[in-house]
């Protein structure tokens, strides 16, 4: 159907970004294909060591899921996207396919090493989220392709992550966000790490230098500081109503450090609550 309608057609998932964009005439699709009534598109299931999340799964359903209880970074993200009303409609597949630079899911899924399964007339293919997102609002999805599923690899016992986004108030997009995932050998020694920033580039920013400041190291306050500084250097924020370049860069450092501390505490088995931060929370 999408193939017949041509490239100007769009698919409608939760509509929480697309409908506002259409009202502003920033999006003027020639046709919309509503995915809301296709059965078996909203689910969260363990499968061969992965967590598989159907594209039409609403943020609110991920927030309340046993999967999010086991992988707290999923909860950090899902529980704080916009507000309750948007979380009840908005979907993970829509968020990833839209590839808004201020979107929350992409940095989290990239830190987790998650994959996207796409389907189209040519069949199904699976691609890492990091390769799926090419540019701002641009993915490798073909015009007749859909996101079917998000696949999150299962975490080991000493693996943990955390996601913190800062926003001015609940309904708006984040100013900056930081997703951190660590795999520890014991309480101190870090086997592997990933740091991915949101809202400070055209796509999520993978901070390779932050990861190498942590990987294969005993985690000291100095190593944490180096990772945060690497994140600040890697960020490419733009000045806008949300803040200046300098402000956003400082914020990246703070969020990275806090997300890292939360991830490390969780890897030690501690219960730490972090999520989106805003005034009045």
């Amino acid at each position: 159907m999408l193939g017949e309608l041509g490239e100007e057609a769009k698919v409608l998932a939760g509509g929480q970004s697309l409908i506002p964009l259409m009202k502003l005439r920033l999006a003027r699709p020639s046709a919309l294909v509503d995915l809301n009534h296709i059965p078996r598109t909203a689910y969260i299931e363990p499968h061969n060591g992965q967590i598989r999340i159907g594209a039409m799964t609403r943020h609110a359903d991920i927030e309340d899921s046993p999967a999010a209880a086991r992988i707290p970074i999923l909860h950090d993200c899902a529980a704080g996207i916009a507000d309750a009303q948007v979380r009840n409609m908005g979907t993970i597949g829509g968020s990833v396919a839209e590839a808004d630079p201020h979107g929350d899911w992409a940095p989290v899924l990239m830190a987790l090493g998650a994959e996207v399964e796409c389907i189209g007339p040519g069949g199904a293919r699976t691609v890492p989220v990091s390769q799926f997102i090419k540019d701002a609002f641009t993915t490798t999805l073909g015009p007749a392709e859909l996101v079917r599923e998000i696949r999150v690899p299962s975490a080991g016992a000493r693996s943990a992550g955390a996601y913190i986004a800062f926003k001015r108030c609940a309904p708006v997009y984040p100013t900056d966000s930081a997703a951190v995932e660590v795999r520890m050998l014991d309480d101190d020694f870090c086997e592997d790490a990933a740091v991915v920033l949101g809202s400070v580039g055209l796509t999520p920013v993978v901070v390779a230098e932050a990861a190498s400041a942590l990987r294969g190291q005993a985690i000291t306050p100095h190593a944490i500081r180096r990772a945060a500084e690497a994140a600040m250097s890697a960020a490419e924020p733009q000045a806008d109503l949300r803040g200046s370049v300098e402000y956003k860069r400082l914020l990246v450092g703070v969020l990275t450090e806090r997300a890292l501390l939360a991830a490390l505490a969780r890897a030690r088995g501690e219960h730490v609550e972090v999520t989106h931060e805003y005034v009045g929370r």
Binding site: L12, G15, D34, N36, A84, Q85, V86, N88, M89
Partner: peptide, 11 residues
């Protein structure tokens, strides 16, 4: 709860 200005009736 949903924002009915951001839901098509067909949804």
């Amino acid at each position: 709860n949903v924002k009915s200005c951001t839901v098509f009736a067909v949804q």
